[in-house]
């Protein structure tokens, strides 16, 4: 794996972009790397767009703002449009093809369309299409191990929602199988 690694996760408010980023960041922490997580913040509203950038490095991280991600997880079309040009050549894009009909429009990156919203409804995983996409990202990048992700999900899910843990793990496995 590359020395440094960065990812942008973007979608509508409520799709779990920030949570997905937190799981990724925890995975880096568990693997003993330096990590940072930085959200878009501001006059965000329900249904508005939200994103966060996560970085791993072996040295202390400079700016937490991700400008050239290795990976983009795009959960809706505005997110794809906004960030597609920032992805580094050779980078990877995981997109929710249930909600995104547009083309990535670049031939120097790898694009992995996942019908995540559809699958989440079909498979009884309502509301965690984001985690299916995380599973796909894990498969395509190998940025960490399944064991680490499992532990990262455990740390990221708040105590009162721990009953959702198995749900999340099933979504990760589903994403990895695609």
């Amino acid at each position: 794996m590359a020395k440094s690694f960065s990812v942008i996760i973007a979608g509508y408010g409520g799709q779990g972009a920030l949570f997905t980023g937190k799981v990724i960041a925890y995975a880096g922490l568990i693997d003993g790397r330096e990590v940072s997580w930085f959200p878009s913040y501001g006059p965000e509203m329900r249904g508005g767009t939200v994103n966060c950038g996560v970085q791993f490095d072996d040295e202390p991280i400079g700016s937490p703002v991700v400008t050239r991600p290795d990976v983009l997880i795009a959960m809706n079309e505005p997110s794809l449009t906004k960030f597609i040009d920032q992805v580094i050549p050779g980078g990877k894009v995981i997109l929710d093809s249930t909600l995104i009909k547009a083309e990535a429009g670049r031939d120097d990156i790898e694009v992995f369309p996942v019908p995540a919203s559809q699958l989440s409804n079909d498979e009884g995983l309502e509301g965690i299409a984001n985690i299916i996409m995380l599973g796909k990202m894990l498969k395509e990048t190998g940025f960490t191990t399944f064991q680490t992700i499992e532990e990262a999900v455990r740390k990221s899910v708040p105590e009162r929602k721990i009953h959702l843990f198995e749900h999340n793990i099933r979504a990760i496995k589903l994403g990895m199988s695609l």
Partner: peptide
């Protein structure tokens, strides 16, 4: 500042 307040780090 807003960066340090909003970011997550270990």
């Amino acid at each position: 500042d807003g960066i340090l307040g909003q970011m997550m780090e270990p």
